[in-house]
Design a protein around this nucleic acid. Sequence first.
DNA 1: ATGTGATTGAAACGAACGTTTGACACACAA
DNA 2: TTGTGTGTCAAACGTTCGTTTCAATCACAT
Lengths: 223, 223
Amino acid sequence: MHPNEAGPDAQDRLLDAAERLFAEHGFHGVSLRTITTEAGVNLAAANYYFRSKEGLFRAVFERRVGPVNADREALLQELMARSAGRPAVGEVLRAFLEPAFRASTSPGAEMFRKLSGRSSVDPSPEVRRIVYELYDPVSSRFVDAFKRACPDLSREDLFWRLACVFGAMMYVRADSGRLQRLLGDDLNMSDPEAAIAHLIPFLTAGMEVPPITTRDENEGEST
Amino acid sequence: MHPNEAGPDAQDRLLDAAERLFAEHGFHGVSLRTITTEAGVNLAAANYYFRSKEGLFRAVFERRVGPVNADREALLQELMARSAGRPAVGEVLRAFLEPAFRASTSPGAEMFRKLSGRSSVDPSPEVRRIVYELYDPVSSRFVDAFKRACPDLSREDLFWRLACVFGAMMYVRADSGRLQRLLGDDLNMSDPEAAIAHLIPFLTAGMEVPPITTRDENEGEST
DNA sequence: ATGTGATTGAAACGAACGTTTGACACACAA
DNA sequence: TTGTGTGTCAAACGTTCGTTTCAATCACAT
């Protein structure tokens, strides 16, 4: 390649610009022309490097999700070893949430958290599909961990409670600005440590509420 | 108007089709041609009745948000009177959540819940702006109610906890299908009564956790 | 019957979209 | 020096977009 020394190369500048603009306008809300202009590269570069607009979108996620998944796996494995397979639910939450908020403090990482949160409930099915494919393998291992941490919960109870966990995590990562409108602009949702410090106690308390539905007899736990 | 007896008129069919397609593909992910074809009306009808694509989107929301806001206002007013201005947080949650899930059982209303949840963190700022404008007046009254229900919480604590509340509500309304992928297709997030029954205990427990940050002296409560 | 205002219809508008092309510039090994 | 692969560039491809136009059509009061 012939770019060089100073600054990131075209591929990285493209990913950075796409990360920001996809987060701020959505996949269908921003054009490759806008992205490539912002990145300072030629329009054709996007298709050259990433085959298509969707390929660029996927590449933005692949760059960030890999490290998050690795951190989550490592924390979960360590937790499982330490707790002999019966972890406290608060510890599972910590292993799940910390990598999601703490992974890298670069300015691009904050943009990606917004993009990831917003894409998790994006109306476009192709957007959600890409996101889920990348997060699912590790997420399903955490579902197992939650089952072990809350053995008294029926699948239905766990379903609804994980909806609260995922929803809260996603809403904070998305940082839509709504609550700042309602409570004051001085408040800030982008501090990873504050997010962790507040979310874990809240969600732990919710997970520890006594079961609502009765646990079905034939629900085996998948050892 | 000259349509009649049988079936909804062009305007309503347009709103119904738009409600579904916006929910499934997003504002920028579906075209007026697709919407008008699905509604069985001429392409020009969308601009004729609603001035623009954005006008149609806004009209979809206005049709549904009005009743939700009215229900919320009524429940909150009744709660405030009954509790002499010091409501239990679980009751505030109930007054906030029940109208959001229960408002109408028509098939269109279920589609709108998805649309509303997904639009709350939509990457496009123009989408979020429309949604917030319609929900905010009543939502800010609920913020006050939460302040009264949790007088020991600092603004920062309340901020993070309401993020969990909004996030959980929005995630369940959005019904992205993610948790069904992880836990099983037999589970169902679209039952309003089940959502209410599970969310309220979970979120109440989270709201009642002891304060994390210390309450600032000069934070006055707005009587 | 006639005029009027509201609605529908087919067609076209210019603009913007994702993508492709082919010529050109560069680095580096042979 | 020559050949090869990689990257850049301006330009164009065909398609689709939101929106507008204007004539045709309808229900209905006059």
